[in-house]
Each structure stands twice: as structure tokens, then as C-alpha cells.
Design a protein around this nucleic acid. Structure first.
Length: 206
DNA sequence: AAAAAGATGTGCT
DNA sequence: GCACATCTTTTTC
């Protein structure tokens, strides 16, 4: 399968993230996430996200009081929030407005550019296990805690850029994966039937 | 100070 | 499908 051409490296504007978190999570589907290693841009398109709200959401890290560990969530929209979990990292982008504490978790990419680079970073696995999970994609793209609390506009080696518009028919919504609190909320967004969506097969359909 | 939990992933059965 | 490695943060004693 040939590697498609790189999209124009024009980052999504900050205003893209200054909207209700569920809207941002939905609209991030189809956008591209790109990481530069030296001369090369590697990454793919976003196929799965989750919204974490600033109120009435006990699963959100902002549901606890503001601390140094979750401070990034209260920064301006477009700020990166990277947090550690089970000796790995997950990547979020702050949404809505400064001071609120809302963000979108990027859960899975469809790998498109520099697949062999990501394979190396992941330690030679099947392409389905390359970026199909929040910690997998961070490892594949070399995202660690040094990215935390930086704004996307100041990160020269990491870009989120617009992709094709996704038809509503091709999207689906479900409960979020791996949480126990506020587990009933329908805040997971993904491309229906896409093979790079995370989790077991039954999570690939709504 | 100690223990448990956690927005996870892997490997083995 | 299930157990467990792994480590930071949070909760409990």
C-alpha cells in the first residue's frame, strides 16, 4: 500500500479547540497527527477519540482539584496534556476555555506516514498494534512528558492538521474504554468499522 | 508511610 | 480471554 502524500503542515487554529469537548472530539476524527524525527514526518490520521468534561464527569482528571499533575488541563485550548498511566503515556488536547479543565484523549491513529519508523519505535509489531491505543500511539510517535503543558502552536515537531471531512454516517459513539467512574457517558468517538480503532472487535461498532 | 488505583499493553493459554 | 508487569499519582492508615 503506497504511502499517501503528506498533508499541508498547517496546524488547526486554536479556535478549533475552543468548543464543547464532545464537538472537538467528534471533529478531530479524520485530522492528521504528525511528529517530526529529524527530517521525516511520521504519523497518521485520527480514528478514535474520547471527551473528558470539566463538570459532571468523575472520570476526568479535572474532577479532582487542580494539582501540579493535572495543571495542563486548565491551560488554554490547544494545550497538550500528557499524563502517565501504567508506566506509559497518554496524549490529550485541552478544549473549551482556559481554567475549565476539559480535554480530548487521542486513542488511535490509522498509520499512514513513516510506518517503518513507527515499527522501529514500537519494536516490530503488526501494523494493527502500532497506534491502536492511547499509549501505543505515544510510543510510536515518541510522545513523552516533555510535551506536557506546551501549546500545539509552539511545538515545532508535533502537528495536528486538518484532514478530509468525515461524514456523520461513518462515525459512531460509545461509552469510554477502561474507566469505572461516569462509565455510562457516551463520549467515545470513532470511525465505524475502522480496523485501527483500539480494543476488542466488539468495540469497533457502536 | 504504606497501599491501592489507574483514560494500558503484552504474552501466554 | 485472563493474568500480570510497571510506575506515577492518589487515597488511606
Amino acid at each position: 500500500m503506497p504511502q499517501p502524500p503528506l498533508p499541508a503542515l498547517e496546524p488547526l487554529p486554536q479556535s478549533f479547540f475552543a468548543h464543547p469537548t464532545s464537538v472537538v472530539a467528534r471533529n478531530l476524527l479524520g485530522a492528521s497527527m504528525l511528529r517530526r524525527f529529524g527530517k521525516r514526518w511520521v504519523g497518521g490520521r485520527i480514528v478514535e477519540t474520547e471527551a473528558y468534561l470539566h463538570e459532571d464527569d468523575l472520570a476526568s482528571h479535572s474532577a479532582r482539584s487542580r494539582r501540579t499533575s493535572n495543571a495542563s488541563m486548565f491551560e488554554a485550548p490547544g494545550t497538550v496534556y500528557v499524563y502517565p498511566i501504567h508506566a506509559k503515556y497518554c496524549f490529550n488536547i485541552v478544549t473549551e476555555a482556559v481554567g475549565l479543565g476539559a480535554a480530548v484523549l487521542v486513542r488511535a491513529l490509522e498509520p499512514l506516514w513513516g510506518i517503518e519508523v513507527m515499527m522501529d519505535r514500537r519494536g516490530q509489531r503488526s501494523v494493527e498494534r502500532l497506534t491502536s491505543g492511547p499509549a501505543m500511539l505515544c510510543q510510536a510517535l515518541g510522545i513523552d512528558r516533555s510535551f506536557d503543558r506546551h501549546h500545539l502552536h509552539e511545538l515545532k515537531d508535533l502537528k495536528i492538521v486538518a484532514g478530509d471531512v468525515i461524514d456523520e454516517r461513518d462515525t459512531a459513539i460509545s461509552r469510554r474504554i477502561g474507566i469505572s467512574k461516569s462509565a455510562d457517558l457516551q463520549l467515545r468517538y470513532f470511525l465505524r468499522g475502522n480496523r485501527f480503532v483500539s480494543g476488542p472487535r466488539h468495540w469497533h461498532q457502536a
